[in-house]
């Protein structure tokens, strides 16, 4: 029992540290939020969206803005560890290094989740869609869970390249496509009044993504970070 308890404690320590840094610097969530809103405005005019936005478009707009904004947070999360080699400090710690993955992924999930939770009422304000519904919140959290797991994994890859943060979107978006399709479709479904059961195929796809990418983190994160 002891090792597993200390494993969870290590994850919690890393997550707690990320929350502390975010609280102190406020360089993640507010930046993502401003960027997400900018995208909403940009798309509103670029795609000539009508004020009585359909549910399908609203779901798409929500996920495009979340997906783009999350990239900033993911990059920020990993470059924080890169600065002053803080990552070495984590690698030195006496625990299986996959704990670093889970700690960072949870942090990214919390921050992007927070951005999403703020975006939902804002969307309800801009468009005649009540977005603050429990099923939609659930779908959003599942989608972000899968998306940020993959994103955390890939951010650790991209940070090692000379091109750094520029690389992450190129790696992330094509691989995340099935997750984004599933998230948009499930959101569209619940916005048009379907129940979670009606969109269960999409929910399963999101769960499969969460499972797959977290397994990837468990198996590969140490390999990604080693020299």
């Amino acid at each position: 029992m002891k090792p597993s308890v200390s494993y969870l404690a290590a994850i919690w320590t890393i997550l707690r540290k990320d929350i502390q840094v975010e609280w102190r610097g406020r360089q993640g969530v507010p930046v993502m939020l401003v960027f997400a809103l900018t995208i909403v405005f940009l798309f509103n005019f670029a795609l000539q969206l009508s004020p009585d936005l359909q549910a399908g478009l609203a779901a798409g707009l929500l996920w495009v803005s979340l997906a783009f904004a999350s990239t900033l947070g993911l990059n920020r999360g990993i470059s924080l560890e890169r600065e002053n080699n803080a990552l070495d400090g984590l690698l030195l710690a006496p625990m299986d290094r996959s704990a670093i993955f889970f700690g960072k992924a949870l942090g990214n999930f919390c921050f992007t989740g927070l951005v999403g939770l703020v975006l939902l009422p804002v969307f309800s304000l801009f468009y005649p869609q009540n977005m603050l519904r429990l099923p939609l919140v659930l779908v959003m959290l599942l989608g972000l869970g899968a998306y940020t797991s993959l994103g955390t994994l890939l951010s650790a890859l991209s940070i090692q390249a000379r091109t750094r943060d520029v690389l992450l979107p190129v790696l992330l978006y094509p691989l995340a496509l099935p997750i984004l399709i599933a998230a948009v479709e499930a959101s569209r479904g619940v916005l048009t009044g379907q129940s979670l059961g009606d969109v269960s195929s999409w929910i399963y796809l999101l769960l499969a993504g969460i499972l797959l990418f977290n397994a990837g983190g468990l198996l590969f994160f140490e390999t990604i970070l080693e020299e």
Binding site: P178, I181, A182, S201
Partner: peptide, 11 residues
């Protein structure tokens, strides 16, 4: 991820 992609697009 390829099976996920294929499945999601087909669906």
């Amino acid at each position: 991820t390829v099976p996920l992609t294929f499945f999601s697009i087909r669906l």
